[in-house]
Lab assay of single mutants.
Amino acid sequence: MTTFKLIINGKTLKGEITIEAVDAAEKEKIFKQYANDNGIDGEWTYDDATKTFTVTE
C-alpha cells in the first residue's frame, strides 16, 4: 500500500486528506468522488514524486 494525499483548494472547502491505496488510479477515483460529493469542481493535478493530488477551484 502507498500513502496518497489530496490537497483541496476550493472556494468553500480547503484542507488535506491522506489515505492509503494500492495505486494512484484507485486513489484518483476515490478522491474525485469525494470532491464531487462535496461540490468541488476544479482543475486536478498529480505529483508522482510526492504522491499528491491537488484540486483547485
Rank of each mutant, 00 (worst) to 15 (best):
Y46M: 01
A21W: 14
Y34G: 00
A21V: 14
M1T: 11
K29L: 11
I30C: 13
E43R: 07
V55S: 02
F31I: 11
A35C: 14
L13T: 08
A49R: 07
Q33Y: 04
I19D: 01
T2V: 13
F4I: 11
T50A: 03
T3P: 02
I17Y: 12
T50E: 02
I30M: 06
V55T: 02
A35F: 12
I17R: 03
N9P: 01
I7T: 02
N38D: 02
G42V: 08
T45D: 05
K11R: 12
E20G: 06
W44H: 01
N36H: 13
W44Q: 00
F53M: 05
K29I: 10
G42M: 06
D48T: 05
G10L: 15
K5Y: 15
F31C: 10
N36C: 14
D48Q: 06
I7H: 02
N9W: 13
K5I: 13
I17P: 00
I7N: 01
T18D: 03
A21I: 14
T54N: 05
K27R: 14
F53V: 04
K29Q: 09
K51V: 06
E16G: 07
I19A: 05
G39T: 03
E57S: 10
A35R: 05
T18V: 10
E26L: 09
Q33A: 11
T18L: 12
D37C: 14
V55C: 11
K11D: 05
L13H: 10
I40F: 11
D23I: 05
V55N: 02
T2Y: 15
T3E: 05
D23Q: 05
K5T: 13
I17T: 03
T45K: 05
K51I: 09
N9Y: 13
T3Q: 07
T50G: 02
T52Q: 02
T56E: 04
E16H: 07
T54D: 01
K32C: 14
T52H: 04
T12E: 10
G42Y: 11
N36M: 14
T2G: 05
I17C: 15
T56H: 08
K32A: 09
L13D: 04
Y34F: 13
E57H: 10
D41T: 13
T45V: 08
D23W: 13
I30F: 12
A49C: 11
I7K: 03
K5A: 03
T52A: 02
F4A: 02
T2H: 08
T50R: 04
T56V: 08
T3R: 10
T54C: 12
E20P: 07
T54V: 05
F4M: 03
D47L: 01
K14T: 12
L13K: 05
N36G: 07
E26P: 06
K32E: 06
D23K: 06
K51C: 12
D37N: 05
E26H: 08
E20C: 14
K14R: 09
D48M: 04
N38G: 04
K14H: 12
M1V: 09
E43A: 09
Y34C: 12
D37H: 04
I17S: 01
G42N: 01
A25M: 08
M1I: 11
K29H: 09
I8P: 00
V55W: 13
A35M: 15
A21L: 14
M1C: 15
A25N: 08
T45M: 06
V55Y: 09
T2D: 05
E43W: 12
A24Y: 11
D37A: 11
A24R: 09
V22T: 11
N38K: 10
D41Y: 14
I7S: 01
T54E: 03
T2I: 14
E20T: 11
N38C: 14
I17D: 00
Y34N: 01
L6D: 02
I17H: 03
E57Y: 14
A21E: 04
K27A: 15
A21P: 02
D41A: 10
K5R: 09
Y34D: 00
K32H: 06
K27G: 15
G42E: 01
D47W: 03
T2F: 15
T50C: 07
Y34P: 00
E20F: 13
T2M: 12
W44T: 00
I8A: 00
A49V: 09
V22W: 13
F31A: 08
E57T: 13
E57R: 13
A25Q: 09
Q33F: 07
E16K: 07
I8T: 00
E43N: 08
I8S: 01
T52F: 04
N9D: 05
E28N: 05
L6G: 00
G42R: 04
G10M: 14
K11I: 14
A21C: 15
K11F: 13
Y46L: 01
T45C: 08
T18Y: 14
A49G: 04
G42T: 01
K51N: 08
D37M: 10
T12R: 07
K27Q: 15
M1E: 04
D48P: 09
K29G: 06
T12L: 12
A24H: 12
T12S: 07
